[in-house]
């Protein structure tokens, strides 16, 4: 089974704070992490490889700093990693991104299964997975909670929808986007960490390495454009209670009773 996982490195958006004075984002110290949903995609790929044999390749598009995240994937146990990095890819929206990734997958060739996380926590679009499938002219299934059955030709999955679930059978190759509920991602192994440290020649593909239409990548290949960005305005004044915990709780309950909300 030849499996490809599409991974995105994202800023840990849970850590983003706002500077009250300037009303701007404070991004100092915000780490870059593997998109949490993608960890589940990697885990599912590793489990399938353990069951059926084969190879797991993780691909990602972004600046060179993504190599750190790719090494983390290696430490989890994936076989190969490839970075797509080129200024020509910058500014890509979901259409251009899915096109670029699909060209890389086409170059890798003979793929049976493509796994993506449900969405990335920075953009939350959930559009790249289905976009890749369309560019490759294969089927896709979103919101996969469980792989029920798989053989060399077909896969059966449980897919969540808004008011329940569906059981879907698809022929391979197919692209799945997976939910967190599908598995519990493993931690990196010692052996994996050692291997990732020794790996100093991670392949970096540029636009020249791909059979690609340059009008369809990066900013020029992106129909959508951001025209303005606003930080939501927030303004409240707080009353912080003092004293030991008993006193603080008493003060709180008193205040709530005074306001007649309790």
């Amino acid at each position: 089974m030849n499996i490809i996982v599409c991974m995105k490195q994202v800023p840990d958006t849970n850590e983003v704070k706002i500077d009250k004075k300037t009303n701007t984002l404070m991004r100092q110290g915000v780490r870059s992490i593997i998109n949490p949903y993608d960890l589940h995609a990697i885990e599912e790929a590793l489990r399938l490889r353990e069951k059926m044999g084969g190879k797991v390749t993780v691909i990602s598009m972004g600046p060179l700093q993504v190599i750190e995240s790719l090494k983390e994937a290696v430490s989890m146990g994936v076989d190969e990693v490839i970075l797509l990095s080129d200024r020509a890819f910058a500014g890509a929206d979901t259409l251009a991104t899915s096109y670029t990734l699909s060209r890389a997958i086409d170059k890798i060739g003979n793929v049976d299964l493509i796994l993506c996380g449900k969405q990335a926590i920075d953009g939350d679009t959930a559009q790249v997975g289905p976009g890749i499938a369309e560019h490759l002219d294969i089927a896709h299934v979103t919101y996969v909670e469980k792989i029920i059955d798989i053989d060399e030709k077909e896969i059966t999955v449980k897919r969540l929808v808004d008011d329940g679930y569906q059981i879907i059978k698809a022929e391979l190759p197919v692209l799945l986007t997976v939910l967190k509920e599908i598995n519990e991602p493993r931690l990196p192994s010692i052996r994996g960490i050692l291997r990732s440290r020794e790996m100093d020649d991670i392949p970096v593909w540029t636009a020249d390495d791909l059979d690609i239409d340059r009008n369809l990548i990066g900013l020029n290949g992106s129909p959508t454009q951001v025209i303005s960005v606003d930080t939501p305005q927030l303004d409240v004044e707080a009353r912080i209670f003092e004293g030991d915990y008993q006193t603080q709780v008493d003060c709180l309950l008193k205040a709530l009773m005074e306001q007649k909300v309790l």
């Binding site: 979901t94 899915s98 808004d162 369809l216 959508t224």
Partner: peptide
């Protein structure tokens, strides 16, 4: 932006090559 809308939307947008804004 339902499960179905978010599955169908990107597929159609990629086929007709147009922009799609999520959610």
């Amino acid at each position: 932006a339902t499960a179905i809308g978010r599955s169908l939307g990107p597929r159609v947008a990629a086929r007709v090559r147009t922009g799609l804004t999520a959610d």
